[in-house]
Amino acid sequence: MAAEGLRAKREELDAILRSCESVCVGYSGGVDSVYLAKAALDVLGADRVLAVTGRSASYPGVQHRMAVDCVERFGIPHLEVETDELSDPNYAANPTNRCYYCKTELWSRLGEVARANGLRTVVDGSNADDAADHRPGAVAAREHAVRSPLQEAGLGKAEIRALSRELGLPTWDQPASPCLASRLRYGLAVTPERLRQVEEAETALRRLGLREFRVRHHGEVARIEVSPAEMPRAVAGVAEVVPTLLSLGFAGVVLDVEGYRRGALNEGLVTLEAG
């Protein structure tokens, strides 16, 4: 029954993609956008699909490598555009709706790309689970008439992972990897230097063999969140990376005892917004 339900959603996704006629895919190299780009390629063909990656200082290098690897491996037409959200003071101030300003820049650029390439529809990789999350970026998507085929088909993250695995996509078990700015505490200005601190700190932790974790930037302090399953590995090795994090300019380094949880910096958001 579950397999039938998944097959029905996949058929619905195919129908949605066909109705788009040709697509410009917002392509980060994450689980959702890789699956969407591959599904679009299979349904529409290479001359009606263009995966577009917006690059800026907030885009993790590790994610970029995966994005490039996938388009090369599967023959997905690909284009990279530079985005400049950091020059927008509304974004740089890092308000709780920061993603709105970033996505406004991204979808504006992708709209231009779509028009220039004669592509009818801009699509993103939002999925059915995202609807329940704090996602101001979704507002920008609506304002730019961006469609979300995975969400429209009712496909959630676990289902997208299962379908990705069937297709042999290397992203099927890849941990979520949102932009580096998501590691900065709201209200802490987004700067290239802080993004670099986060990226280099996470690179050091990745060398310990950790897969699902975040370095949260609290100004002078780096707060490390590690998934509960990987906490023993973190406890065994984290002391090794503390000197590296201090050398990056953090005055304090702490290991969160409750571990990684998605959207941890959204905790207490109501208080922040009210304040």
């Binding site: 707060r223 490390i224 984290v238 002391a239 503390v242 201090l246 953090f250 005055a251 304090g252 380094v253 702490v254 290991l255 969160d256 005892v257 409750e258 941890a264 905790e267 207490g268």
Partner: peptide
């Protein structure tokens, strides 16, 4: 407190 964490840069580990 919003977060509870082990202080790794205070010398207690070493």
């Amino acid at each position: 407190y919003r977060y509870v964490a082990l202080d790794l840069a205070d010398g207690a580990q070493s």
